[in-house]
Design a protein around this nucleic acid. Structure first.
Lengths: 110, 110
DNA sequence: TTAATATATGATTCATGATTCATATATCAT
DNA sequence: ATGATATATGAATCATGAATCATATATTAA
């Protein structure tokens, strides 16, 4: 596996906002305003995220007049659900991961 | 799923250096110098990564004199292999993901 | 054509992660 | 105890992603 595709994959899927959008879309197709409403993400920010998800092939878009209706590429649903399942199962271990590392703390103190 | 455990999971696993370390460790236990040699990551940087992976419960450590021998927590091997499999399978789609977005490009131009 | 609505875009700012560097600590061999 | 080796640490720097803001574009309705 090359670094480029690794980075692209985790760039797209490893952001909570984008992951939330994918979760919402796994139920049904939604336009941008609906996504913004359901996830609480501001409209232009949603558009930025959709561009990324679209480029990656994680979602598809169908234009219906003014609205752009996005739907998930069903091929990625299994990987999303397996990640969710893994995180739920190992949340105790994962939660102890020291995200707030010394680097971060030292910045916060200043 | 909460945002905190989501972030912790992707923070730990979503970095190419750490993922490479986990890949190496999935074959056999290694001390820090061996990890540095196998992955090409500088020693102190390896130690930083190991601290993160350790806190997350992704690896375990056994001290043998001067050396600290790290081994992978076998529970996470399935998720790693399934991610690798997914990326290999969908690399064409993924690779087209526009990581180098306008934001990044505009910075590069300056 | 004009106004209203939906979405997209680029630039800027802000937040945070990765790496490096110098150095500390800990263990071993002499 | 001293020097050599292995590893860890904190601070600083560098790289990059996320959110925001102002605005552009496109479509529809009047």
């Amino acid at each position: 596996m090359e670094k480029l595709e690794f980075k692209a994959f985790f760039y797209a899927i490893g952001d909570y906002s984008r992951f939330s959008i994918l979760s919402s879309l796994s139920k049904r197709g939604l336009n941008v305003s609906e996504i913004a409403l359901e996830t609480g993400i501001e409209q232009s920010n949603v558009s930025h995220h959709m561009k990324c998800l679209l480029n990656c092939g994680f979602v598809r878009v169908m234009r219906n007049g003014k609205e752009h209706v996005y739907s998930i590429n069903s091929e990625i649903i299994p990987i999303i659900t397996s990640i969710i399942r893994h995180i739920e199962k190992y949340k105790k271990e994962i939660i102890s991961c020291d995200i707030a590392d010394m680097n971060y703390i030292s910045r916060m103190i200043k």
